[in-house]
């Protein structure tokens, strides 16, 4: 390839989130990424913190006391919300990304029907499930306790 003398115009990380007037699947992609990173961060801290149970009741209760209080409950709820989204959307992606629920190749006749249209009902059902989980989780976190 010839060395380009052009002006660089890659969107960069901005392009992950805002590249233009994007559709709902772009936002699901961003959310999946953000919740994934959040869950990983929480998971690392969670492993370290809960390891204290190996040292017996005293150490366990001390470390649990360190993370109690309303702020931590809200934080944990956010983790639950992230989990609910990442799990359900992840299941959808796991199936779609090996070609289930994206449809067969078709004759492209205008207006085009794409894999996104095949996914649309699945996305709607998945998001309803996520919402349900978030509500039930919220009741459990803040009301039933």
């Amino acid at each position: 390839m010839l060395e380009s003398r052009g002006h660089p115009n890659r969107l960069g990380m901005r392009g992950w989130l805002f590249g233009g007037r994007w559709g709902p699947d772009r936002y699901l992609y961003s959310l999946h990424r953000i919740t994934g990173l959040g869950l990983l961060l929480y998971f690392a801290m969670h492993i370290i913190l809960t390891s204290s149970r190996a040292l017996g009741q005293g150490a366990w209760e001390e470390s649990m006391a360190r993370v109690s209080g309303p702020l931590f409950v809200i934080g944990e709820y956010l983790v639950f919300v992230a989990f609910a989204f990442h799990a359900i959307n992840g299941l959808r992606l796991a199936l779609a990304e090996v070609g289930f629920g994206v449809g067969k190749p078709i004759e492209p006749i205008y207006p085009y029907r794409t894999a996104l249209d095949e996914q649309r009902p699945i996305v709607v059902v998945a998001m309803i499930l996520v919402a349900l989980l978030i509500v039930v989780g919220g009741l459990d976190f803040f009301v039933w306790h």
């Binding site: 639950f80 992840g90 990304e97 090996v98 039930v136 989780g137």
Partner: peptide, 24 residues
């Protein structure tokens, strides 16, 4: 990565249900 995701879905689902949906 995909296979791991499916295992997590089951195990972490159980873990979350035990920890956070206990009242329900």
């Amino acid at each position: 990565h995909l296979a791991a995701g499916l295992v997590i879905l089951v195990l972490l689902g159980l873990h979350m249900a035990i920890m956070h949906l206990d009242a329900a």
